[in-house]
Design a binder for these strands. Structure first.
Lengths: 150, 150
DNA sequence: GCATTGAATAACCAATTCGTTATAGAAGCA
DNA sequence: TGCTTCTATAACGAATTGGTTATTCAATGC
């Protein structure tokens, strides 16, 4: 409550949710079908409230939805946010596609003479393979810029 | 954490690193080319030590490497871990590709739970688009569980 | 040798995270 | 109604996170 404004960006929430092995295991479990809380808690050596908290995090990230059936609440995998997260990382694809050693880097500019024929996938010309169109990365600026001006 | 030794799995570290908007912005900045710490700190309304900490996290996740040039340390984007992270999420692709009624699915699970009275998967799985081959999900099991799941 | 620049570290703080146990609440059943 | 089952919540605690300021360390330059 002391926070002036919660960032609450989807991407951060999704990545944070995925950063926990237990939650990833829960997601995996849900690929086999919806499950109630107790069912999800079983395989883990932790209490039911702990799992409930994890589910709350997953729900907050939009990675699961929940339905009350009887006395049970069923969690259902919602993979849509993963799509967004994947798309984010895809922007960096060319950076791991162009695998070069820092030594090989010089060699790459040499091999460059062959030209980027085709999909330009393997030897992607140079060391810095042209910035990806990460157009939305000012998100951080928005949040951080308007802070203390000392 | 009461666990004697942290497993420190790569995937968790990468996702955790990506969960912070500042760090994502730093990564994006590095797509434009290597940069020293002060250079990276500039656009943000935060101190240099704060950025240094972020860089440490990124380095720990293997997302950057660093080189000392003069009195400066240059950060270099290492996108390889993003490949692994992307591959992880790709396993869920069919789940965001297939759109089906979630209520119906919940009902199916309910029937499954009340019927066979166990973990038996009935073949009447209507819309669940067949579990992806998430074979490496035992990562969570290693840490948390004390029984077999898969 | 000595001052300067650039970055890391120390010490601290507030807030969050991830777990616990104990309790409360909601829905079905005798 | 009262009991049971399932899940959420409260209250707590240890560890981590993300930031700060002050200081130290390392490498350059003079």
């Amino acid at each position: 409550m002391l926070t002036p404004d919660a960032p609450a960006d989807q991407l951060s929430d999704v990545f944070a949710a995925l950063a926990d092995p237990t939650r990833r295991a829960i997601l995996h479990r849900l690929t086999l079908g919806d499950a109630r809380v107790g069912e999800l808690a079983e395989p883990f050596a932790m209490s039911q409230p702990a799992v409930s908290k994890h589910l709350k995090v997953l729900e907050g990230a939009g990675l699961i939805s929940r339905t009350q059936v009887a006395t049970s609440r069923f969690s259902h995998l919602e993979a849509e946010p993963l799509k967004e997260a994947t798309e984010y990382m895809e922007k960096y694809r060319r950076f791991w596609n162009s695998s070069f050693d820092k030594l090989d880097e010089a060699l790459a500019s040499f091999t460059r003479a062959t030209g980027p024929a085709g999909t330009a996938r393997s030897t992607d010309t140079k060391h810095t393979p042209e910035p990806p169109s990460v157009t939305d990365e000012n998100e951080a600026n928005e949040e951080n810029k308007e802070r203390s001006d000392d």
